[in-house]
Simulated scan of single mutants.
Amino acid sequence: MKMEDYTVEFCPWCCEEVVIHAVGITACPSCGKPLAPCSVCWDAHGGCREPCPYGCAGAEADEQKPVTTPPITQEEIDFVMANY
C-alpha cells in the first residue's frame, strides 16, 4: 500500500470523512454511494476542475455514477488513517 493511492473525502450523502482510492469512483465505505477523488483533482485555486474527469456535476445524478474501483478494505482504511 502507498499513501498516494488513497485520499480522504467528505461524503455528501452520509456526512462522513472516508478513505477512498485516489483514482476512479469508489463506493463510500460508510454508505455505499459513489465518490470521486475530488481532493486530488482540484485546480490551483482549490475548486473543481472543469470539466470533471469523472463526469460529476455536483447534483443528484452523481449518486448514480458507476463504481470503478474495488471496495476499500478495513486494512486500507487503517493504513491511511495511521499515516494521514
Rank of each mutant, 00 (worst) to 15 (best):
G58C: 07
G46Y: 04
E63P: 03
W42D: 04
P66Q: 11
C38N: 09
A36W: 00
D43E: 15
G55S: 02
E60P: 05
P34D: 07
Y54P: 12
A61D: 13
C41S: 08
L35K: 01
P51I: 13
G47C: 14
P34K: 02
C41E: 01
R49E: 02
A57C: 01
A57I: 06
C38Q: 10
G47Q: 15
D43F: 07
P34I: 02
C52I: 09
C48P: 14
G47P: 10
E63I: 00
P51V: 11
A59I: 07
G47L: 12
K65A: 14
V67E: 01
D43M: 09
G47W: 13
S39M: 14
K65Q: 11
C52F: 04
C48L: 11
P37D: 08
E63N: 14
D62E: 12
E50M: 01
P34V: 03
C56M: 04
C52V: 09
E63L: 04
V40L: 02
G58K: 05
E63G: 09
H45A: 14
P37R: 01
A61E: 15
V40E: 00
C52E: 03
G47R: 10
D62R: 06
A61Y: 01
A44G: 14
P37E: 05
P51E: 08
P53K: 02
G46K: 00
Y54I: 15
C56R: 02
G55D: 03
R49H: 11
A59H: 10
G46A: 06
P51W: 06
C38F: 14
Y54T: 11
L35D: 11
A61H: 06
P34C: 08
C41P: 01
A61L: 02
C56S: 02
Q64N: 12
S39D: 04
A59Y: 03
C48M: 14
G58M: 08
D62C: 07
V40Y: 00
W42F: 15
P51F: 07
D62W: 01
C56I: 08
A36T: 06
L35A: 08
L35M: 08
D43T: 12
G58H: 05
Q64D: 13
G47A: 11
A44N: 05
P66C: 13
L35R: 03
P51L: 01
C41K: 06
K65P: 12
P51Y: 05
C41H: 03
Y54Q: 04
Q64Y: 05
V67P: 09
H45Y: 03
Q64I: 00
R49G: 04
C52H: 00
P66D: 10
H45R: 01
V40A: 06
Y54F: 13
E50P: 09
E60G: 13
G47D: 15
D43H: 08
C48T: 13
V67D: 02
C56V: 05
P66T: 14
A57G: 06
G46F: 02
E50W: 10
C48H: 06
P53I: 13
P53A: 07
C52S: 03
P66L: 09
Q64H: 12
E63V: 00
C38Y: 08
E63M: 07
G58S: 14
P51C: 04
A59Q: 10
G46S: 09
A44W: 03
Q64P: 04
H45Q: 13
S39Y: 09
